[in-house]
């Protein structure tokens, strides 16, 4: 039964997340442009970009890169499917990390020095956000009493009440996970602050299109994690959750446009400090009180 639910969830996520993620990305680009005093591209520009990439000639430095990226995309869809079908949050966290690792392996497999710098930085990013993301799962378990996301539907209070500090810590690493400046070390959407094109340097055409679709799905999943903190038994809480998610998305765009990229040392240091204090203190309080 559970497996069936996950399969249905994954298929539904595979259809809905790219659409939603594409629109979110289009809104991101328009709002970014307005913040810079520009008009910006049409709302469906990310969709046009991906369709264009699919039209390009197929060129790859090796045969395996495309397969790794396909795996990364599939595992992202699975992680989203598990989460949105109400499955285990912990499983969703592990599988999305697996997707990130496939992405890194794809970049390493090309043996391009620029892609390798991007891959190294992506590994450091995983190192920076992963402890906090695991604490999110632990904090969620302690607040709701289950790793199953569906448990929020019968919870008397939302997770944010007991795991507020964990949520704050997660907000900090969310900027890394969404690949927004100042933490877009491995792959920036802005050419002016990138070494060739970071982790995607050697990816082109349909492979790059898959990377874009993967980012859309990732964004939807991570915003789902944000919303999860605000849902409880009351059906009206969904409205609050969606409002918070949209506000967080706007905040990320604002941060993206206002900060220059930091060095990786600063990212690693601050994300671990915040993980230790925000996550650690919250979990200690939940454990001993």
């Amino acid at each position: 039964m559970d497996i069936l639910l996950i399969i249905i969830g994954t298929l539904a996520f595979a259809v809905a997340a790219p659409i939603l993620g594409c629109l979110l990305s289009g809104i991101d680009r328009i709002i970014s442009a307005r913040m810079q005093g520009r008009v910006g591209p049409p709302l469906l520009q990310p969709y046009y970009d991906v369709r264009k990439l699919l039209e390009k000639d197929r060129v790859s430095v090796n045969a395996s890169e495309g397969i790794y990226i396909t795996c990364a995309l599939l595992f992202t869809l699975l992680a989203g499917g598990i989460f949105f079908s109400g499955g285990s949050l912990l499983m969703s966290v592990f599988i999305i990390t697996l997707a990130a690792l496939f992405f890194v392996i794809a970049a390493y497999s090309t043996r391009s020095p620029y892609a390798e710098i991007g891959a190294n930085r992506e590994i450091i990013q995983v190192l920076a956000y992963e402890p906090m993301v695991l604490l999110v799962a632990v904090g969620f378990f302690m607040a709701i009493g289950s790793f199953d996301v569906s448990a929020v539907l019968s919870a008397e209070t939302p997770a944010i009440v007991k795991a507020g500090l964990v949520f704050a810590g997660f907000m900090f690493v969310l900027t890394i996970k969404l690949r927004k400046s100042p933490f877009d070390l491995s792959y920036s959407h802005h050419a002016h602050q990138e070494l060739v094109k970071g982790i995607t340097t050697e990816m082109s055409g349909s492979t790059l299109a898959k990377v874009e679709i993967m980012h859309w799905c990732e964004n939807v999943l991570f915003l789902g994690w944000v919303g999860m903190f605000f849902v409880w038994a009351n059906p009206l809480s969904w409205i609050i959750a969606i409002a918070v998610v949209l506000f967080v998305w706007f905040l990320e765009i604002l941060i993206d446009n206002n900060f220059a990229r930091v060095k990786w040392q600063a990212m690693l240091k601050w994300s671990w400090i915040i993980t230790f204090f925000a996550g650690g203190i919250n979990i200690m309080i939940l454990a001993y009180l």
């Binding site: 060129v59 050419a191 002016h192 990138e194 060739v196 094109k197 995607t200 340097t201 050697e202 990816m203 082109s204 790059l208």
Partner: peptide
């Protein structure tokens, strides 16, 4: 978009 990568 201005890209820094000929492959894109």
């Amino acid at each position: 978009i201005n890209t820094g990568n000929p492959k894109h």
